[in-house]
Structure formats: structure tokens, C-alpha cells
Simulated assay, not measured.
Amino acid sequence: MARVTVWNEYRHEREREVVADVYPDGIHAVLAEVFEAAGHDVRTATLDEGPEHGLTEEVLADTDVLTWWGHAAHDEVRDAVVDRVRERVLDGMGLLVLHSAHYSKIFKRLMGTSCSLKWREAAETERLWTIEPGHPIADGIGEHVEVEEAEMYGERFDVPAPDTLVFNSWFEGGETFRSGCCYRRGNGKVFYFRPGHETYPIYYNDDVRRVLRNAVEWAAPGDGPTPDFGNADPIEEIDTSDDRTVH
């Protein structure tokens, strides 16, 4: 069991009826159900949940995996909160970056690039191909996943080359896109997963939900040793009398 915090802007669902029809209680509520059904300890947080957007030091300290969905209000996320999330990722917290959160401050900060891409809204078919069938995130997923209605994202996707590319998408209009990208940042694992537009019911797709559950289990921190940094005493006996140092 992992401690999962599901973060969502929760703006579109309150401001646009077409989005509320698909996600009446918010995208975060649907995602929380996915992880709760898998037995995880789940809480939600939203952009307007106080000056820290629901991501206080206490909440993040009690989070193994943070999922992030944003679209219209990336710039409203306080830099101090972004710094806090980044430090937790470097310390070992997992991060799932979903769909349009490729433009979130935290993902751009961790990637060090613009994270820009091509896009088109035409409710077109997406075929999500499994590139690494042996990867834990692809467990139980077939050779490909069919998404009947999707927003197109196209290359070039301005991110660093993934440590592992688990999924690659083809769209009805002809474009392709790196849709399932794994990264390590410090002690933490980051997974970017493309499917999930606000006006299409993609988070109800059984295969998409399976990927999300797998990703949480992959990204959750393990029980490995905590690394030490800085000046170190020798493990073996050596002569430490040399004083040629400027530190």
C-alpha cells in the first residue's frame, strides 16, 4: 500500500459544464477512486485549497506518490510549493505527471526544458503502443491500448530522452508521441503519462486505469539505503594525515 496524494487544478470542472458532465466531482475524485480500489491510502488536494494548494509540508511528508493534473492555471502555482515538491521528489517521493501537466511548473523544473509539443483537439483515435512490455508499468496491458476520442499531442516533445519509454502513441491524424516516459530525479521516480483530456472520458478506460495503478506501484519509494553526501570517513583504514585541502 502506498500513500497517494492526487493533486488537481479543479477549475475546468467548476467553470465548464461540458467538463462537469464527464467529471462531476472533479478529475481528482475519479483518479482517487482508481487508487483506492487498488488498496492505497489516498487523499486529494486542489489548487484553491489554501495558499499552499493543499500541499503543505505535512501532506508531502506523508506522501509516497503525488499525481499531478493541471491545464489552465499552471502559473498560479506558487514557486515555494513547486520547490517543496521538487525537494520531496529528489528525496524519494514518486511523481505521476498527467496529460497537460507537461506544462506544469514542477515538470518543467525537473526536466530543465520547455516541455512544449504540438496539439490538436479533434476527438480523434489514439493508439497507445506498448514499447516495453516487460516494464512494471505495462503489466497486464496488451500490445496496444485504443482510446476512441483523444486530444492529439505530437512531436517534437521537448523533454530529455526518457530513461525508459514505456508507451508511444499514434493518432488518427498521423502524428506520433512519446506518451509514457520514465525518469529518475535524485532518489525519486517520475512518470509522464499523456492520456487524460478533460472533456473526454479517458480516465474511465480500464487499460488507462491499469497503467495508473501500475505507475503508482512503480513510483513508490522502496526500502533501499538512504545515501549520505559530503565529507566521508574511510571505510578501510588509511592514512588521513594529508592536509592539502582548501575546504
Rank of each mutant, 00 (worst) to 15 (best):
L110K: 05
T113I: 14
K108L: 10
L110G: 12
G142P: 07
V85L: 11
M152H: 01
K105N: 02
E149V: 13
E87V: 05
C115F: 13
Y103H: 11
V145H: 03
D91K: 03
A123D: 15
H99R: 08
V97W: 01
E151S: 04
V147W: 12
R86L: 14
V147M: 13
G94H: 05
I137Y: 06
R120F: 14
V145P: 09
V85R: 06
L128T: 04
E124H: 02
H99K: 04
E121S: 12
P136K: 00
S116Y: 12
A150Y: 08
M111Q: 07
G94R: 03
V97E: 09
L90A: 10
G142T: 04
I106H: 07
A150F: 09
E87A: 08
E146Q: 00
V147I: 15
A138T: 04
C115L: 13
E146R: 10
V145G: 01
G92W: 10
I141C: 05
C115R: 03
H135L: 05
R84L: 09
E149S: 04
A161E: 15
V85M: 15
G112L: 08
E132M: 03
P136S: 01
A161P: 13
W119Q: 11
V82H: 02
D91V: 02
P160Q: 06
R120Q: 15
H144V: 07
M93Q: 10
G154C: 09
S104A: 04
G112C: 07
M152Q: 04
I137T: 00
E146Y: 11
D83Y: 02
T113S: 09
V159T: 06
A123S: 14
L95M: 09
S104T: 11
A123M: 14
R156G: 02
D83K: 00
L96Y: 01
E87L: 08
R120A: 14
S100R: 01
P133Y: 07
W119V: 07
L128K: 00
G134K: 03
L98G: 05
L117R: 05
G94D: 05
T113L: 13
P133L: 09
G92H: 00
G154F: 04
G112P: 09
E126R: 05
G140D: 05
H144K: 07
R156F: 15
R156A: 14
V89R: 01
F157E: 07
F157H: 11
K105D: 08
G140R: 04
A122N: 12
E146A: 05
W119D: 12
V147E: 13
A150L: 12
M93Y: 11
R88V: 12
A161L: 13
R156M: 08
H102K: 04
V89W: 11
H102A: 15
A161D: 15
E149M: 06
D139P: 04
D83W: 09
A122W: 13
S104I: 09
V147D: 15
A150D: 14
T130R: 01
V159L: 07
I141Q: 07
A122L: 14
E155L: 04
T113H: 10
V97R: 00
F107V: 03
M93D: 12
A138C: 02
P136Q: 02
R109C: 09
H99N: 05
A123R: 12
R120L: 15
E124R: 03
